[in-house]
């Protein structure tokens, strides 16, 4: 047998791996007992037991997707893991943590969410690039450095924001000098004459919690296409694509034969 000879690293096996908890700050263990978890693609690093990974568009998952996945733009980034065994999740050696929602809501940067239980439902936030989880259940999120929880009212740096819970009013805040006169504008654009880089913040007021990460280095995010091209939808003016109209929201996010996101895959 290969053990840890006095003081060596901890060796895990299916018995000693924690159940739905962190193995260390960077690795999270999920136990599946015939249950299902939504998982961002490529975040599984290892598993024991028999677990199947299927794309969200898989026909058999139609009912599950209808009840807990309402985010067609992100459909190609998510898979459903089902089976029984223990599975390890990690993301680029970033800190991972699990959070419990109890009949609550939480909005999070889309690249930071790693996995969630199907008892939660995932929706796109009105704020582009963010996802909202509603319901009761557990989810796993990554952050660059440990997460700090803050109470509003507060203003945060856009790069440090991970997400927020129960706050009704995320909005932009610009410092006064940023907007006054031609010189202010030039300064902000060129950095000449001294821009602190902190003239623009996100502001939160009201009851709730704001989650911050302790660096300003963002996780590399994938472009997720565009929201449906409709009047009144923020961000819908930008770019082409977005063929997932309102009609395509439930059930199959993409019809077979449409070749999926091949263009994106090849970087076109």
């Amino acid at each position: 047998m290969y053990g840890a000879p006095g003081g060596g690293p901890t060796v895990y096996d299916p018995m000693t791996l924690p159940v739905d908890d962190n193995v260390n700050s960077y690795t999270f263990c999920v136990e599946l007992k015939g249950s299902q978890w939504f998982l961002q693609k490529g975040k599984m690093i290892a598993y024991y037991g028999s677990i199947d990974f299927n794309g969200v568009g898989h026909g058999r998952l139609d009912r599950l997707v209808r009840t807990s996945f309402h985010s067609p733009l992100h459909a190609s980034d998510w898979v459903v893991a089902e089976g029984s065994g223990k599975m390890l999740l990690a993301d680029r050696a970033f800190d991972v943590n699990s959070y419990d929602l109890d009949d609550g809501n939480l909005t999070i940067r889309s690249g930071n969410l790693l996995a969630f239980q199907p008892s939660l439902s995932l929706k796109q936030s009105i704020v582009p690039g963010f996802l909202t989880l509603i319901g009761t259940g557990k989810f796993v999120a990554a952050s660059n450095g440990p997460v700090v929880f803050m109470e509003p009212p507060l203003r945060v740096d856009p790069q440090a924001l991970v997400g927020w819970a129960d706050c009704p009013s995320p909005c932009h805040h610009y410092d006064h000098g940023y907007m006054t006169g031609v010189m202010g504008g030039l300064r902000a654009l060129t950095g000449l004459g001294g821009a602190s880089g902190e003239e623009h913040q996100f502001e939160f007021v009201g009851a709730g919690t704001v989650l911050l990460q302790s660096t300003e280095i963002l996780m590399a995010e994938q472009a997720t296409g565009a929201v449906p091209h409709e009047p009144g939808v923020p961000g819908s003016g930008a770019g082409a694509g977005g063929h997932g109209g309102p009609g395509a929201q439930s059930g199959a996010p993409r019809l077979p034969g449409q070749l999926g996101d091949l263009q994106r895959r090849f970087g076109l």
Partner: peptide, 22 residues
């Protein structure tokens, strides 16, 4: 390793499946 490595035991009754990138 990129981040602390997790050491996993493989035994005859518990085979292990690993992502090649990890």
């Amino acid at each position: 390793s990129d981040g602390p490595a997790v050491v996993l035991r493989v035994s005859p009754q518990y085979p292990l499946i690993v992502d090649p990138g990890a």
